[in-house]
Design a protein around this nucleic acid. Structure first.
Length: 281
DNA sequence: CCCCAGTCCTGCGGGC
DNA sequence: TGCCCGCAGGACTGGG
């Protein structure tokens, strides 16, 4: 479930290998499962990017953007289980794609895209599409770049529960199911509160909590849940799962009030965790 | 605009 | 021991 912190960690992990390097080969890995979703096809992408230099590797919401000197970019969406690795992958079975690059030091290095469930995608974006990706429109402002005014606009635009609105990438981009619960708990906001009923005070708390939680999670290199799927670029677990306040902690005592058990409810077919004492409205 | 259910996919754990 | 089923959810789609 890579969300913003996990994708940021992946980007930081692969950046030293890729930035300033020249792409020598891009190959699909033999994989018994359904082939990787890659747009347009791999041969077409290879023709357009192999031989070119990678200028920057950056994150936009939950996507990895690999910029080329042509102005085009390879955009990787890890979705549920996709990983970008610079060291040996967990297994060969779910390897999908391998980049071979010539580092400025002349050394050949490799980066792998590994994806257990195969929901991840790789797409080549034209310069215009790259431009559109970074502007607000299709995707909302990046969760780490939200201003108070962005939060005001985002909240006033919908009557949906705030938890559901936080997951809508068209409103605010980068937050997924795990961090939405964490942010609302730190904000002391009930997840079912209609977004357009949040007070200025609550929106301020949400703005602060979003920055705090996401940066803290980045500092710990993301969350590796029980299934152990998420790994950083060196195939190591993240550490933030040990700091989760409510996510997947149904029945445990709330870390804020130390009195009430964490509840689990379902919103928009997804689990939400919260403290009924600390998050009343 | 809103909401829901279904789709992709694999691994895991519960129930029998 | 093994099998079936439901669940996990990010992004998207189609129907109401």
């Amino acid at each position: 479930m890579p969300e913003l912190p996990e994708v940021e960690t992946m980007v930081r992990g692969i950046r030293p290998t890729l930035e300033g390097a020249r792409l020598m080969a891009l190959e699909a890995c033999p994989c018994a499962c359904r082939p990787l979703t890659i747009r347009p096809g791999l041969p077409s992408i290879v023709r357009q990017v192999v031989g070119h230099a990678i200028t920057r590797v950056v994150r936009r919401a939950k996507r990895i953007v690999m910029q080329f000197d042509t102005g085009s970019a390879l955009v990787i969406e890890p979705r549920m289980t996709g990983l970008m690795l610079v060291s040996e992958p967990p297994n060969e079975t779910h390897l999908r794609l391998v980049w071979t690059v010539q580092h400025p030091s002349d050394e050949l290095r490799q980066v792998w895209f590994w994806d257990q469930r195969g929901l991840g995608t790789v797409s080549l974006y034209s310069p215009e599409e790259v431009d559109r990706l970074f502007r607000h429109g299709q995707l909302g402002p990046d969760a780490l770049e939200m201003t108070l005014d962005h939060w005001r606009v985002m909240c006033s635009a919908t009557h949906r529960p705030i938890k559901v609105a936080l997951l809508d990438q068209h409103r605010v981009a980068g937050i997924g199911n795990l961090y939405a619960s964490e942010i609302l708990h730190l904000s002391r906001i009930h997840p079912e509160t209609p977004a357009d009923e949040l007070t200025l005070h609550q929106r301020r708390r949400m703005a602060d909590s979003t920055t705090t939680i996401l940066n803290e999670a980045i500092r710990y290199e993301g969350s590796t849940l029980g299934d152990g799927t998420y790994r950083n670029a060196l195939n190591q677990s993240g550490g933030y799962q040990n700091s989760h306040r409510v996510y997947a902690r149904e029945g445990e005592t709330c870390p804020t009030c130390h009195r009430t058990a964490i509840l689990r409810i379902v919103q928009a077919q997804r689990s939400t965790f919260y403290c009924p004492r600390c998050q009343r409205s």
